[in-house]
Computed example of a mutant assay.
Amino acid sequence: MSYKHINMGCCQKETNSFPKIIAIPGPAPTPNIGVLSYGSIRGDTLEIISPIAAPIPFQQVGPLSNVTVSPSGNELVVQSNGVYQIAISINAQATVEPDPLQSYFTVSITVNGQPIFLEGPAIFNVLNRSSSTYVVQASLSAGDLVGVSASSANPIANYANRSLSIIQLS
Rank of each mutant, 00 (worst) to 15 (best):
A28F: 11
P98Q: 10
G147P: 01
E119F: 13
S132I: 09
K20N: 05
Q93F: 15
Y104Q: 02
D44P: 00
S17A: 04
F117P: 00
R162A: 01
Q60D: 06
S131P: 00
D144Q: 04
S149T: 02
S103C: 01
S152R: 09
P100K: 07
E47V: 04
G9E: 08
A142P: 00
S165T: 02
G82V: 06
I123W: 11
I90S: 11
N125S: 11
S103G: 11
P71G: 12
S163T: 02
I49T: 12
P63N: 11
C11S: 10
L127S: 05
A23T: 06
S72V: 02
A53W: 09
P115A: 10
S163E: 04
G143V: 07
N158K: 14
P29N: 12
L101V: 02
Q102L: 07
G26W: 14
Y104L: 01
Q168P: 04
L76S: 04
G82N: 06
L64R: 02
G34Y: 13
A28V: 04
A157F: 15
N66E: 11
A94R: 14
P19K: 07
A122P: 00
S132A: 15
E97S: 06
S149Q: 14
V69F: 12
A142L: 05
Q93A: 12
G9Y: 09
K13R: 03
F105K: 02
Q102E: 04
Y3F: 10
Y134I: 00
V35G: 07
P31Y: 14
S170N: 13
P155S: 15
V69K: 07
N81F: 08
S65Y: 15
P63H: 09
N112A: 09
P57F: 10
Q60G: 01
A157Q: 12
G26Y: 13
T133G: 14
I21E: 08
F18T: 06
G62P: 05
P71W: 14
S139P: 02
Q79F: 05
P51N: 14
P27F: 13
L140M: 08
Q59M: 05
G39Q: 07
